[in-house]
Design a protein around this nucleic acid. Structure first.
Lengths: 247, 247
DNA sequence: ACGGCCCACGCACAGTGTTCGCAAGCCGTA
DNA sequence: TACGGCTTGCGAACACTGTGCGTGGGCCGT
């Protein structure tokens, strides 16, 4: 070690590390900080270096608590799933109200973190996460309360979750471009209007649908569309049950 | 220009470009090459440099035909949508068979290109692409044939596509990790079995579901699950129609 | 023969995920 | 008390990424 590299070998110039007075870094706070960063700036802005600086840590300090960026994302995804209100068994308003409430909570959660839909297709074993397991089990229990068999409850859960994930994907895509534009939903739609009209010029049904949509509030329309589709799915799974139960 | 930088100013050392004998680069072939690359190696492997070399071109040569990587991806997404068989009006087997066939084609297409679900949440205006517009208009027409009003047809289309996208997202996530593992579906599931059991240890309903699933072929089960959910959704939209039409 | 245009490309820049080796604090043991 | 091991943070480095800019070469109209 060359001894005289510092011109001022004083205590004051030396950085005085004093680590270990806080418990240093922690898997939970890493996940929490990643979630904040994702919500604030979107999926492209999540880099290990930015995450490090946000935690007053170096870029590579997270790798002792998390194996990968992919693994980190799996953790964050399950953290988001933890925000979904699981349906309550023995809901006084009945199983269907409980399921409907859970569906609303799930959509709201996914749209509160719209970046999530772009990682759902890669987070392969997401349904093994503790929060996802808990949620699934709760939904199965509620469907059983509605006198579904376990198999039927499973089918219903899968169909319902697929619907919610799918519609949230479309909505999140819209919300993301919206956020990037920096405008309000109506203003952005107005600006997009001529382009959209031109795109569907050759298609009369889409043309008249777009014309109707121009008159209404887009976010209300999205809420209504979700509710209508949800009713359809629930009616469908119930109908299947009745049909199979009483031959 | 300094004249004597080459020690051998011969014709043979000079690279002899001979461009312009083929029509050079082309938006369509760029999109086609990107699609090949994505199918072969997945979403993370698509880089402008790799795409360039695959086209015998430089890394930045695509930017005269495509503004962005994002724009390129939008083009590829619509290209994939173009593979979906639109339902035929006046199908001899009725509107429901036509819709069912289109749904099957859509699922098969998405699973043939499983990387697509990870970009659907970012490709904001994907439904303005020509192939997506065409597909939507065709589905609207077929639902109208089933005596849906245009509004009801739109609701049905949205719900149906949400279901298909959602379930394909889950399946694609599974297929992607499967492909990364390099094993067969059953072998990979067997290897995953103890981990899965441990993850759902506290949840009796999930436990017994997993136990049942262990006995059957996974890919057949996925096919059956899709069909059952599809029937539920279609029954649901039809039920809503009947309910509204005859008060 | 020459000027303008189009288009491919090498270079460069800022930034990415991740590996590796180093250093510093803490703990158990001699 | 001294010392060796273990854990943990971190700087440097590597192989990449998307993309802006300037260059240069081939083509076409005059």
């Amino acid at each position: 070690m060359p001894p005289d590299e510092q011109s001022f070998p004083s205590v004051w110039t030396r950085p005085h590390p004093q680590r270990r007075e806080q418990p240093a870094l922690n898997r939970e706070q890493i996940v929490a900080a990643a979630l904040e960063l994702l919500d604030a700036e979107g999926i492209d802005a999540l880099s290990m270096r930015k995450l490090g600086t946000r935690l007053n840590a170096g870029a590579t300090s997270m790798y002792t608590h998390v194996a990968n960026k992919d693994e980190l994302i799996e953790l964050v995804v399950d953290e988001v799933y933890g925000e979904i209100e699981a349906p309550a068994t023995n809901d006084p308003e009945g199983w269907r109200a409980a399921i409907t409430g859970c569906a609303h909570s799930m959509r709201a959660t996914l749209l509160r973190h719209p970046w999530i839909v772009s990682v759902l297709g890669e987070a392969g074993l997401a349904y093994l996460g503790p929060n996802m397991s808990r949620l699934q089990e709760a939904m199965l229990a509620v469907f059983e309360e509605g006198s579904f068999t376990l198999q039927a409850a499973n089918q219903a859960t899968n169909t319902l979750m697929a619907y919610i994930i799918g519609i949230s994907t479309s909505e999140a895509a819209w919300l993301t471009t919206l956020a990037r534009s920096g405008r309000s939903e109506q203003e952005w739609a107005d600006r997009l209007w001529p382009t959209a009209l031109q795109a569907v010029e050759a298609y009369p049904r889409l043309r008249s649908l777009y014309a109707v949509q121009r008159a209404q509030s887009l976010s209300d329309a999205r809420d209504d569309d979700f509710d209508i589709g949800l009713e359809c799915v629930l009616n469908g799974v119930v109908a299947r049950l009745a049909h199979h139960a009483a031959p």
